[in-house]
């Protein structure tokens, strides 16, 4: 089993819900993002195309971040998900340098409030109960592993059943993101990648990313 994504760039409108769904799902602190929307342009006036790329940790099959982690905090599961054990991470940030996609963030200051100087809201407080973040560690997208694990334990299928599927995938209003098992030749995601000529970004980095893009 190898979890992966395929993102249809034509469908995406750059609404940022993938970014905020993730922030909501994990009660991410201010200025921390586990996925991003990159906006750019291609061409010269008047023949111009707008570029919109939703990017996150690629959960590479050959992840350099795992190799460089001195404490073993950054590790890869059997299903390909790369995650950081925050109890083992010492915040050296070697992984941040090693990642050629620059998809990791250092979380430093747990005193930051969404409404600075006005205390934590009820929402932020419940977040610290449901999904606390340890300061001084590196964090990143985890393909909503908690949702996947609890979903599968209940007999649900990630990529098919909402509750077992990453939040950014289910929240996308244009259904631009597919999620599924790259190891299963018959999976929907493999069909989409094949039919629509999906390709990862920067294959020359040689890390074998698990996220494909469809033009």
């Amino acid at each position: 089993m190898r979890w992966g994504m395929a993102i249809e760039l034509k469908r995406c409108i750059g609404c940022y819900e993938c970014v905020l769904a993730c922030k909501a799902e994990h009660f991410l602190p201010p200025d921390i993002f586990w996925n991003r929307v990159l906006i750019g342009e291609s061409g010269k006036y008047p023949t111009v195309t707008k570029l919109i790329y939703n990017v996150r940790c690629n959960h590479c099959a050959d992840p350099p971040c795992v190799k460089v982690c001195p404490t073993g905090a950054t590790q890869q599961r059997e299903d390909g998900i790369v995650w950081v054990d925050e109890d083992k991470c010492v915040g050296c940030r070697y992984c941040m340098i090693a990642c050629p996609y620059q998809m990791r963030s250092m979380y430093e200051d747990d005193s930051k409030e969404y409404f600075p100087g006005q205390g934590l809201t009820e929402h932020e407080k419940v977040g610290r109960e449901l999904y606390p973040h340890k300061p001084g560690v590196v964090q990143k997208c985890v393909f909503c592993k908690e949702r996947i694990d609890s979903g599968m334990a209940a007999g649900l299928t990630p990529g098919v059943d909402r509750e077992a599927t990453p939040a950014c995938v289910t929240s996308c209003p244009t259904k631009a993101i597919h999620f599924g098992d790259l190891d299963d030749p018959n999976s929907e995601i493999n069909r989409v990648i094949k039919e629509k000529h999906g390709h990862p970004f920067h294959p020359e980095f040689g890390t074998d990313p698990s996220i494909y893009y469809i033009d």
Binding site: Y16, E17, V19, A24, H123, V126, G127, C172, P173, T174
Partner: peptide
Amino acid sequence: VNGVIVKIDGDPDSDFGPRGGICAKGE
């Protein structure tokens, strides 16, 4: 969850919207 609103999802069964998705403003 525990009395606090934590997430906004589109209603996946309704045509009145993105059918399960939502935009950032909604979240």
